[in-house]
Structure formats: structure tokens, C-alpha cells
Nucleic acid binder design. Structure first.
Lengths: 342, 342
DNA sequence: ACTGGTTGCACAATCGGTTGTGCAAGTGCG
DNA sequence: CGCACTTGCACAACCGATTGTGCAACCAGT
């Protein structure tokens, strides 16, 4: 490798070295030389020279001209376990397509989301993946106005292609598992408000929580024949709030209920803060289910059933939707049950 | 907001609407109108028109002209808990500076790292943060050749500014805590190979593990007066390997040792896979320390002391080093001890 | 030798900003 | 009124690629 200049090489430099014109160089390096009727020998010579000089194209210039940047963005709320997994697969998939992943967290702030999308459109981004955004419709309009292909993951949007976990079915299955675990522990549903399952955490105004609540309710009703609004304690994903919620529930019931449906990783962590203070026998009398997969959840002093969202599948399906330019559809991906040894 | 065209607006469009020239528009929108002696009234009129038309600059064009992209990149190996935290703060810091964070995971692959940096230089990236990279020196050379400011986080580089956790001191403190916990459990160091602390996981060829091993060894020597190479089981960060390592150690010793120094989150998870299979009394007889902070670690059936790396501080110091254009120095950040209730 | 068709490439416009420079109109002063 | 100086802005040259178009040179056929 000749390190003559540390300066950036342009096609003009290469053209000079090769005794060719910039357009010829461009064609050679882009593989379009055949279409442009450049002699193979010339193309090869140019490619060789470019290699020697360590040429790499100025991507701004290319993007400016072609208005395609080769950037693909992922917007997500924060870096928790689930979203990090999504980010990881997203990264791999994008790079496998020879594009550059741009991952941005917006902290569940709608304004931040809007302004980020505005920024990204200024970058002539090729596509945007939205994960767990707050206001999908607005964002979709924004993208549509800028002509940017986009997909929603884990949060459905009525006016754009979306891929989401089938929360309702997942919640039914998880609820069934919790109930099975309860009966295995010899507990049955009765008039005592402790003798049932409680749903903790999440935000009912968001579709995913709403669907989980629905699934939970349906299964409860199917199996027990009744379900009370008091069993649903879902107002926020916040970790601290989850700790308070379970603490209050415990105080109110005078002990743990027979079963707990824990909505999401962060709620799990918050709940555990309180649970960790309880004696062994109280914990082993209660059946736990968590709608999210947390490896450490397998390793607690009591069994926890978990619903694992298939992040790889979610992302891959999202790419498929994008690439086929699908009309607005919502595609569902089934989560997997991790069944703890009871 | 007037949504006349969904097409992109340029300064030329705005210029026409405002009856001004493109250069005037540019100056107005960039706030350089004072330097360019544009009348305040004109500038304000232009700004207003731009707002009305929802103008936003084409960043490729700007970057092409100025050769500054406003992009700041973070390269990291993968999205585990520690790196995700880093990514999160990085994101916030970059956006606070009105720039755009680009986060890319390279899966600990040196070739991937090289090619990613090459890509990034083609984007005239403004700066690169490297976290936990495999071959720092190569990357630093690459950046230097392209004239890109860069910083290493969590992995020192001899020829570029670096910010790393003070692993040696951290390891000494954690080791001290483990030993204190041991004596509290009535165990003392003896000839039985079980009656001591073992260091599990990590990669000794990497500086961070090496420093932790050093700190561990020093403290052991200081307190016990001896340390054997057999106590150090550090060959990889791999999760599965960690499970094997602890399983074998258990078999070899005929039980758990008196203390375990667990190197990193992933090793913790791997180790726990095995530990979770053991009965209560064996676990409570052993003292655990983990060099990484994992919230769920507080919630296990046995106490685990943890060293929390201060990711926020790491990232902020890294920005400071960049912004002050410091010569190659290695700056150390002390980790914090999380002391479990024994 | 002249025509028509191909081959191989160079020219120049263009993407949308930034920025050095120049020039007219206005102001102040003697 | 004339001159120097300031104010307010427009012009045009970039940045480095892509791409439509044009034009020599060569070839084959007549």
C-alpha cells in the first residue's frame, strides 16, 4: 500500500493517475463500466490503481447525487434487554445488506422522536425501523411526507406495515401456565381476593399492554369464569412504580396472591426488589409468570415462567415487509414460552 | 404549516420565495448573517419563510461542502448490559451536542472493526468512540490516517486517549470484600484447595481482565500471603465456557470453594446456570463477588457483591478528552462497590 | 472511398449547500 | 459636491460523486 498522501483520494486523483476521466473511474469502480462501454482492461487498471491508493468514495457526495444514503435507522425508546436484542439483530441484518445501521434511542419522548425523524430525513436515510415508539401515526405521516420507507416493530401502526408480537395469544398461554402452576401448588380460586392471579405493570394505553391484559382476562375468564378489574394493575412500565405496586398489593391482601402475571422485564426487576425481601415459603406458594425473557429469571429462588419475544424473527419479518413494499398490514409473531421447572 | 409540496425544499426554493439569493438564505439560516452583514429584518423574514415551508437542510450537501458530517460513532462488540449502558449515555451526550449518534456493533471481529472504520471515514465522521475493541492500535492508526479524532473506552490504547475503569484497584476492593465475607462465614484459608477464592472468566490477553487478575492476586497476597496460579481460571468471556469452568471446578474440588471472583456479567450468567442447580446450604457457604453490575444479582438466593462500572463517567470523561484534544493518556475511572447484605 | 454501426471514452450538468469576493447604494464628513 | 467608508446583498466557485450525451476512432460492408 502506497501511503503517499494521507489526504483523501477522489475519483479525480485516480483519474489523473490512470489517465482517464472521472466518469470513467466512477463507472469502473461502480461496476457499471459494462453498461457504459468501458473496455474491461481500462476498468481493471482503474480498479487496481484505486486499490493501491486506498481510495474510498466520499459517501456524502454519492448520497447528494443519488439521494440514497445507504443508511438505515432504528429508533427505539431505550437500551433495555429486549430493545438491545432487537438492536443487535437489526445491526447484523443491515450490515448483511451492505448498508450502515444507525441506532438512536429517543427515551419515549414524542418530541424527540419527531425531531429525530426530521434529522434522519435530512440525511436521506433509506429506511426507518420504529421500535416501541409512542406516536406511530405521526411518525408514519412524517416519513410518508419525506418518502421514506418505514416499518413498525413491537408497536402496531394503522397506516404502515407493522410486525408485532402476538401479545394476546402469548398472554393467554402464559396465564394458562400460571394457573396450571397454581393448581399444582394446591391452590384454587376462591372468594378470598388472594386466591387468584394479578396482572402487574405496563401501560394500558399502549397496544402491547392492552393486548396482554386482554389475553390475560380471556384466559382467566375461560378457566375461572370470572375476572375482576381489581386484578389488573397496569399503569406504567416504570421500575420504581412496579416496586410500589407490588408492595401495596401485598399490604392490601395481607400476603402474596396465588399468582402474578408480570408485564415486562423492567416490571420484573421492580417487583423483585420487593419479593427479594420475603421469606422463602411465601415465594414458593406463589406462581409467577413474566411477559419477557430475562436469563437471570431462571436463576431465582423460585420458578418463573417467561414469554420470550422472538426478536430475531420480528426484525427479519420487518425487513421482509419493507423489501416487498407491503401495504399497511400488521403481522404477528408468536412468542415462545419458557416453562420453569415447577 | 403549509404543505404545498411534499417535495424537499432547498435554499433555492426559499430564496425564490423570499426574493433573496441562496447565499443570503444560507447565512440567515446558519446564524452567520451578522458576520455576512445581512440586515436583521431580512434574516428574520427568511427564517420565518423557511419555517413555514418546513425547510430542513440537506445534510449530505452540507457535509460535502464542509467535510464535517455531524455524525459521531460508537463502535462496540455487542449489546450486553454494560455496553448497552454505554451506548445509552453516549447517545444522550451526542444528542446534547446537536450531533447524531451512530452506534455499530462489530461482534469482536477485527476485520469487521477495520472495515467499519473505513466505512465511517467515508462518511467524514466527526469522531469515533471505541469501546472494548480487539485491536486498538490498528484502529487508531486508521483513524489518524484519516484525520478522525477518536477515543478508547474500557480498553486502553497506547497511542490514543483512553478512558478505562481502574480494574486493578476495583479488583482489589472486590477481593477484599469477598475475603471479609468469607471470614464472616467462619471460613479461613487453609491447605484444603477449597479454602480460598477462585477467579473465574474473562480473557487474560485483554488488559481489563489482566488488571483484574493482578488486583485480585495482589489483594490475595496481601491478605493471605499466598496465591496460586490454579486459582485463576480466566480464558474467555464466553457464557457457555463459564458454565463448564465452574462445573469442572466444583467436580475437582468436591464442592464449591470458599469464595468466587466472577469476572463480568456474561460469566456471571454462565456460572449461575450451574449454581442454580445446587442446594441452598452449599451456596450460602460460599462468598461471591462479580466484577460488573447486574440488577438481578441483588435478587438471588445468596448475596453477591458487585463492582459497578461507572458508564456515565466513562463516557463523559471520554468526551472531555476528545474535546480538549488531549495527547495519548490513559484516564482511570474508579468503579463502585455494591455491597450485598451478607 | 463513403456510409452506417459500433466501441470507448470524455464533457459537462447536477445534487444542495457554504463561503470568498465584488459591487451598488447609502451614510458621514469636509 | 466629492470622497471614503460602511451596509446589504448577489455571484460564482467550490465539495466529490453520478449520469445523460456527444464525439472521435475504428470496423465492416458496398
Amino acid at each position: 500500500m502506497v501511503m503517499t498522501d494521507t489526504q483523501k483520494k477522489t475519483i479525480y486523483d485516480i483519474a489523473k493517475r490512470a489517465g482517464a476521466s472521472p466518469s470513467t473511474v466512477s463507472a469502473a469502480l461502480n461496476g457499471t463500466w459494462k453498461k457504459r462501454r468501458i473496455a474491461q482492461a481500462t476498468a481493471e487498471r482503474i480498479i487496481e490503481i484505486a486499490r493501491e491508493h486506498g481510495y474510498s468514495a466520499n459517501l456524502q457526495a454519492r448520497a447528494l447525487r443519488t439521494s440514497r444514503s445507504g443508511l438505515v435507522a432504528l429508533l427505539m425508546p431505550e437500551y433495555n434487554r429486549f430493545f438491545s436484542n432487537i438492536a443487535q439483530t437489526f445491526s447484523q441484518e443491515v450490515r448483511a445488506r451492505n448498508q450502515c445501521p444507525v441506532i438512536i434511542s429517543t427515551g419515549r419522548d414524542p418530541d424527540e422522536e419527531r425531531s429525530t425523524v426530521a434529522d434522519l430525513t435530512s440525511w436521506s436515510i433509506d429506511a426507518i425501523f420504529f421500535v416501541g415508539t409512542v406516536a406511530p401515526d405521526d411518525l408514519s405521516h412524517q416519513c410518508r411526507a419525506a418518502g421514506i420507507p418505514h416499518v413498525f416493530v413491537d408497536q402496531p401502526c394503522a397506516i404502515a406495515p407493522s410486525v408485532v408480537t402476538d401479545s394476546r395469544t402469548g398472554a393467554r398461554i402464559l396465564t394458562r401456565e400460571i394457573i396450571a402452576s397454581m393448581t399444582k401448588r394446591g391452590r384454587s380460586f376462591g372468594d378470598d381476593p388472594r386466591e387468584t392471579v394479578y396482572f402487574v405493570g405496563g401501560d394500558r394505553t399502549l397496544p402491547s399492554t392492552k393486548n396482554r391484559v386482554d389475553g390475560f382476562s380471556e384466559e382467566m375468564y375461560a378457566q375461572v369464569g370470572q375476572i375482576s378489574a381489581k386484578q389488573i394493575l397496569a399503569s406504567t412500565y416504570d421500575l420504581e412504580a412496579a416496586t410500589r405496586t407490588i408492595t401495596e398489593l401485598y399490604a392490601q391482601l395481607g400476603g402474596l396472591p396465588a399468582g402474578l402475571f408480570i408485564n415486562s422485564d423492567s416490571v420484573f426487576e421492580g417487583t423483585l426488589r420487593f419479593l427479594a425481601t420475603l421469606p422463602e415459603h411465601e415465594l414458593s406458594a406463589c406462581s409467577f409468570g413474566c411477559f419477557d425473557y430475562e436469563p437471570f429469571g431462571q436463576l431465582l429462588r423460585f420458578p418463573v415462567h417467561m414469554m420470550r419475544q422472538r426478536h430475531k424473527m420480528l426484525v427479519q419479518r420487518a425487513f421482509a415487509l419493507l423489501e416487498n413494499e407491503t401495504p399497511p398490514v400488521i403481522e404477528y409473531v408468536q412468542p415462545e414460552l419458557y416453562r420453569a421447572a415447577d
